[in-house]
Design a protein around this nucleic acid. Structure first.
Length: 209
DNA sequence: GGGGGGATTCGG
DNA sequence: CGAATCCCCCCG
């Protein structure tokens, strides 16, 4: 006999297959999923792959440290790091446990909790810009260091959901953003993936009027 | 123990 | 274009 209380719980669950593969493969499959934190949420429209030990630009390139520990965890963990003395950025961990790999969430299309997100950001800006940037979306969703290591597939504060919108078949592919000149070879890779033409994507042309 | 640099953002 | 602002990690 089915328990009707179980139904909503399974609706919106992310298929484990969506998190399996290389960071680049997982990045493509994360597009159009929903990242939620409490009552606030948004659709993932821009991501970047970081391939651990194989990737000069990855925080885990030189092996495991205390800061990057969660990147070595099982697929579906949240890896949050602090940077520039003031910003947090959120990643979805992939690769099997013990092997580092992650996908940075760079931009969301806001879905719910718009006014709460605006209040947290503390500034006036159009809805489509509130979560346009990896640190901006963390501020809007109140994601910080305390959320590092969270299981995004579990029923907690921060979670990853599937509302049925499939990933784009031909995502936009660009070089990753913000990498220094020291990692020159890594900068050639087009591991920044986004929903083509979406206005919440970082660096997308701002249309006025 | 010191110092350089950072997967950013905003304002000038 | 550069300041803000602090933590991490490599090196000595």
């Amino acid at each position: 006999m089915p328990d009707s209380d179980d139904l909503p719980k399974h609706l919106g669950a992310v298929a484990p297959e969506r998190l399996s593969g290389t960071p680049l493969e997982v990045a493509a499959k994360l597009l159009n999923l929903v990242l939620a934190s409490g009552e606030t949420s948004g659709r993932i429209v821009e991501v970047e792959a970081y391939d651990g030990a194989n990737d000069q630009a990855s925080h885990a390139f030189r092996g495991r440290t205390e800061r990057t520990a969660s990147m070595f965890g099982p697929p579906g963990l949240l890896y949050v790091y602090f940077t520039y003395g003031m910003h947090y950025c959120a990643n979805v961990v992939c690769r099997p446990e013990g092997v580092a790999g992650a996908v940075l969430i760079r931009a969301l299309e806001p879905l719910t909790g718009l006014e709460l997100m605006r209040a947290r950001r503390g500034r006036e800006e159009p809805a489509y810009r509130i979560c346009a940037g990896p640190a901006k979306l963390c501020q809007a969703l109140a994601i910080s260091q305390v959320d590092d290591g969270t299981d995004l597939l579990a029923d907690g504060k921060v979670r990853l959901l599937d509302d049925g919108v499939p990933p784009p078949k031909n995502p936009e592919k660009r070089p990753r953003i913000g990498l220094s000149a020291r990692v020159e070879s890594a900068r050639a890779l087009t591991w920044n993936l986004s929903v083509k033409g979406h206005r919440s994507v970082t660096g997308a042309k701002v249309r006025t009027g």
